[in-house]
Write a protein that binds this DNA or RNA. Structure first.
Lengths: 301, 301
DNA sequence: ATTTATTAATTCCTAAAAATCATTAATCTT
DNA sequence: AAGATTAATGATTTTTAGGAATTAATAAAT
C-alpha cells in the first residue's frame, strides 16, 4: 500500500459523492468521465477498499466511504482555504507588513507613504517602528522589521541598501538673521555663528564631524540638544543657527526659519531602503517598498 | 495560476523548511535533490511567490513561507491522519459494525459468533439489533444494519441472501412421551398429538402452513404461544409437543426434551446472511460476515 | 589568494502517470 | 424489444515527474 493518493483523487471522491454521478462530477472537475473513473479506482486501490458503490447506472457512497467523506471534505476545504489565504497575501489583499522608519522620515514622508499604500491596499495591516537608523537596521537584522527607511551609515554586510535621497545639510536660521538673505553660504562663512548642535552620540553629528574635519572643531559648542525638533525650535526663536539635513526642515513648516544651502564642502547623508540580503520580502512589504521608493525618490530638496 | 499543487509539493516544502536543506530533505523524502528542487519551484510557481529563500549554500523560510508553513503542516498532518484512520478501518483494527440478528440465532449461535469476532478484532465496536427476521430485513434496507443473520422469507429484490442453514422442523416432546423413543416420525403419525403452536402471525407458523397444507389445519389448535421459548417451556413440562426448527432446540438445553426428526413432508426454513444488493460492506462487516458464515455453515443438526 | 568542498539549480533524457478518444457492458426507460 | 444513459475498459497520446550528470555559486580550508 504505497500512499500515492493525491488531492485530486480526494477531490474527485468528494465531488462524485456530492453529485452522485461520475459524468456530472467529471463535468465539474473539467476532466473526462473516464479519467475520473480511473482516479476513483486509484484512490480505492490505495485505500484498499471501495468508497463508492456503483453500478453502470448509479453511484452511492459505501459505508467506508461515509466514514471517509467528512475527512476528505475537510482535507480538500482546508487545502483550498489555505491556498486561497496565501493567494490573498500574494495579491496584497491581506496580510501584514512590519517596517522601521527613522525619525526624519517618520516626521516628513511617512504620512504620504502610508496614505498611498493604504489607498492601494486597504486591508493590509501596517506596523511602523519608529526607530533611530541604527535601531532600524538592527530590527531588519533580527526580523522584527522586513525593511527600514533609514540612513545606512556603515551598514552591515548582511543588509542591502538602496539609496534614494541624497539629503544635503543646509543652514537654518531665523528669518531675521542676516544669513537668511543669502542664496548660499559656506562653512568658512558661518564658522563664527552660534551653532546649536546635536549631542555627540548622534549619528548625524558624526557625519558632520567626519566631513568637516578641523573645521568642525571650531564650531561653537555651547548649545547641545537631543533632537532636530529642539534644534528647529531654538532656531525658530532666533537663539542660534543649525546645520541640518534639508529633509528635516519639512517637519516644522510653522516656524519663521530660512534655509540656506551650504558648501565647501557639501555635506550630505544617504537615506534609503534597507533590507536583509537574500531574504524575499513578503508581497505586502514588496509593495510598501515600491511606494516608499517612489515617494522618496520623488522628493525634491 | 492553475492550482496544480499536490500534497507531495506541500510535504516537500514542510520537510525542507524543517531541515533547512534540500539535500537532507531529499534524503528523507527518498527522492533526488534535483527532483525536490523542482517540486519547490513548481509550488512557488503555483502560489505566485517564493516560500523559501535559498542561496547555493543555504535555505531559509521566507516571510510568506512563514505564513504558509503552519497551514502546510496542518494539511499534511490532517491528510496523513485521515488516511491512517481509514487504513485502520480497512484493516479492521478500528471501526464499528451494526447488524441485525433474528431471535433464534441470537439465542443460539450469536455468542459464538461474537466471541470469535471479538477475538480477531478486539477494537471493533459491535452493535447487535435483535429483531424478528422481517424487522432485520427492514433495517438492512434502511441502512440501520449492514447485514442480517435471519430468515429471508419472500425477501426483497434489493436484498441479497446467502442461505447457510437449512433448518429442518423437528418434533420436540418430553422425554417421557412415547414419541421420545422414535428415531423419526411423520406428520401423519403425530396428527392427533396435542400441539403447542405459535401465534398465527408468526412467520415460522406460516412456513408450516404453506408446507403442510390440509394437514396443517388438522393439528390441534388450543394452545398458542408467542415464542419458541414458551413452546419449549411447555414441552419441557410434558404439556404437549411442538414442531420447531431444530436450531431452536439449542436455546434450551436444560429441559428434559427429546427431539424427533419428522418427514412427509420434510419442512424447513432457510437461515442465512442478508445484505443490501450492490452495497459494499464495511471492512468490519465483511469480517463479521465471514465469521458468521463459518459458524452458521458449520452448524450440524 | 587559491583550492576544495558543499549545495541548490539546470539540462538532458527516460520512465511513469494521467488524460483522452472510442468503445463496451450493463441497466433503466419507454 | 429498442433506445438511452452511465460507468468501465482498451488503446493511444500527452503530460508530468524523476534520475544522472553537470553547472554555478559560495563557504571553508590551506
Amino acid at each position: 500500500m504505497i500512499r500515492d493518493i493525491t488531492l485530486d483523487d480526494i477531490t474527485a471522491f468528494v465531488v462524485v459523492a456530492r453529485l452522485g454521478s461520475f459524468a456530472m462530477a467529471a463535468d465539474e472537475l473539467l476532466v473526462t468521465q473516464s479519467a475520473l473513473s480511473r482516479r476513483i479506482k486509484k484512490l480505492e486501490n490505495s485505500l484498499g477498499a471501495a468508497v463508492l458503490d456503483r453500478t453502470t447506472r448509479s453511484v452511492s457512497v459505501s459505508t467506508l466511504g461515509l466514514e471517509f467523506l467528512p475527512k476528505a471534505i475537510r482535507i480538500v476545504e482546508d487545502f483550498n482555504r489555505s491556498v486561497d489565504d496565501i493567494n490573498e497575501i500574494v495579491k496584497v489583499r491581506r496580510g501584514i507588513v512590519s517596517f522601521s522608519c527613522n525619525m526624519t522620515i517618520s516626521d516628513t514622508l511617512l504620512p504620504e507613504i502610508l496614505e498611498k499604500f493604504k489607498d492601494a491596499h486597504p486591508n493590509i495591516r501596517v506596523r511602523v517602528h519608529e526607530d533611530s537608523s541604527p535601531q532600524a537596521l538592527e530590527k531588519v537584522l533580527n526580523g522584527q522589521s522586513e525593511l527600514a527607511l533609514a540612513q545606512f551609515g556603515e551598514g552591515h554586510p548582511e543588509l542591502e541598501f538602496e539609496a534614494l535621497i541624497n539629503d544635503q545639510f543646509v543652514i537654518v536660521c531665523h528669518k531675521s538673521h542676516p544669513l537668511a538673505q543669502s542664496k548660499s553660504t559656506t562653512w568658512a562663512e558661518v564658522q563664527n555663528e552660534r551653532f546649536i548642535l546635536l549631542r555627540t552620540e548622534s549619528g548625524t553629528r558624526k557625519i558632520l564631524q567626519r566631513n568637516l574635519g578641523d573645521r568642525y572643531d571650531q564650531l561653537s559648542n555651547d548649545l547641545q540638544v537631543g533632537h532636530f525638533h529642539s534644534q528647529l525650535g531654538l532656531v525658530g526663536r532666533g537663539i542660534g543657527i543649525a546645520a541640518i539635513p534639508s529633509l528635516v526642515r519639512l517637519s516644522r513648516k510653522d516656524l519663521d526659519i530660512a534655509t540656506v544651502p551650504i558648501s565647501k564642502p557639501v555635506v550630505s547623508r544617504q537615506l534609503g531602503i534597507v533590507t536583509y540580503r537574500g531574504r524575499t520580502l513578503s508581497p505586502a512589504a514588496k509593495k510598501l517598498r515600491e511606494v516608499a521608493a517612489s515617494i522618496m525618490s520623488g522628493f525634491e530638496k
